[in-house]
Amino acid sequence: MSILFVLIPLGLALLGLAIWGFIWAVNNDQFEDLDQAAHSILFDDDPVAPEAPDRPGDESS
């Protein structure tokens, strides 16, 4: 069980990392807007050029 003397401090280090990450996230406004991110996935990153052939004919005069 001596492995505990390695694993538990390792766990502590990970915990420290997790806390650091969390605080970083809070300080960088990651928790400011929880709704926007859910929607932003719907949008293309870069607007794709309109695919000309697919467009339904010349309805617009």
Partner: peptide, 14 residues
């Protein structure tokens, strides 16, 4: 408050 909550939550789990 959020930072405190995070620290307490993570600490609690451990």
């Amino acid at each position: 408050m959020l930072r405190r909550l995070g620290v307490a939550g993570l600490g609690m789990m451990q």
